[in-house]
Simulated scan of single mutants.
Amino acid sequence: MSGEGAEETAATTEDETAERSETGADRRKPVVVVVEPETPGNVGTIARAMKNFGLTDLKLVDPPELKEDGEAYGFAGHAREDVLPNADEVTFDEVVANYHTVGTTAITGEDDRSHERFPFKTPVELRESLKTVDAPTAIVFGREGRGLNNEELSRLDEVCSIPADEDYPVLNLGQAATVLLYELRDLTVGETQLPDTEVTRAPENDVERFHDFFDDFLASTGQRDHVREKNALLMRRLMGRAHPTEREIHTLLGTFRKANTKLEHADRLAAKYDEPPYPRDP
């Protein structure tokens, strides 16, 4: 192969790789399918949840009429601008034929004798599973009153159920979609409105200074040695679990520095005027 031809082939390969890389995240974003929704308001609520969590592709199987001045658009929020008007009407067969499908259900099989509804994943388990699926995926919700039936579930690839109180595990359709899409947000949302929550633990020398100040505080309050040792250990365990930030530990250092200074001053005044020291344990 000539050098020019090799360069063209290499460039084409790089372009294809870049395209796959750019669209990989989009391919992992599932479409949302609602089978025979009965209430336009629930369709609007689902569209709004999709907008909240970075999804845009809504597909409806035998939906009711969705009027622009009706309940669906009223419940959709900003999703009325794109998600809802761009929703596609499809058949159940088309969904099964073109997507890796996840059916949702409130009622599950308790063991492997119920093949239609068992095994099932929780939303968190589904999120981790879908991270490995590089294929068009559809999250399929059923009817408000009856959900997906066993025949429909048997044609889908996976089953997901939201853990809830066993006395009343059935969520409203819009609520169920919101909960599930929230749990899948790592697959659908690059950034959120929340700031970075990663924190850095305070330097260990500052943490040790705090423990020294706390020991001085315990001594100034006149606690017996064995009580002081126990309290100091409890504080060390507490701080070990808390992973305080630098700002938090400096705030505590300032507080205990002032407390120790006042206790020392009180002891000096008591000695000067021959008064009882700070109350101590009998």
Rank of each mutant, 00 (worst) to 15 (best):
G3F: 04
G3H: 10
E4D: 03
E4N: 07
E8K: 07
T9L: 12
A10D: 08
R20P: 12
R20L: 15
A25F: 14
D26S: 11
R28D: 03
R28Y: 10
P30D: 01
P30E: 00
V33T: 06
V35W: 02
V35Y: 00
E36C: 08
E38I: 14
G41V: 13
T45R: 13
I46W: 02
A47Q: 09
R48L: 05
N52E: 03
F53N: 06
T56H: 04
D62Y: 04
L66K: 05
E71H: 14
E71L: 11
Y73H: 08
Y73G: 03
G77F: 00
E81M: 08
E81Q: 06
E81T: 08
L84E: 02
P85Y: 04
P85H: 01
A87G: 04
A87D: 07
A87M: 07
V95T: 12
V95M: 03
V96P: 00
T101L: 02
G103N: 10
I107P: 01
I107C: 09
T108D: 03
T108I: 15
G109C: 10
D111T: 05
H115K: 14
R117I: 06
F118E: 06
P119S: 04
E128N: 06
S129Q: 02
L130T: 00
K131R: 09
K131A: 09
P136D: 00
A138K: 09
A138M: 08
I139Y: 00
R143F: 14
E144Q: 15
G145C: 14
E151Q: 09
L153A: 07
L153V: 05
R155Q: 05
D157V: 02
V159G: 12
A164Y: 02
P169W: 10
Q175V: 01
A177R: 04
V179P: 06
L180F: 00
R185S: 00
D186S: 05
T188R: 00
E191R: 12
T192G: 07
T200K: 12
A202T: 10
A202C: 15
P203Q: 01
P203H: 00
D206R: 15
H211R: 15
F213A: 11
D216L: 14
F217V: 03
A219H: 10
S220W: 04
R224F: 11
R228W: 07
E229W: 12
K230T: 09
K230R: 08
L233A: 12
R236C: 15
L238E: 06
H250D: 13
G254A: 07
T255L: 13
A259F: 14
R268C: 12
R268G: 15
K272M: 14
Y273K: 04
Y273I: 10
D274A: 07
E275S: 10
P276D: 02
R280N: 09
P282S: 08
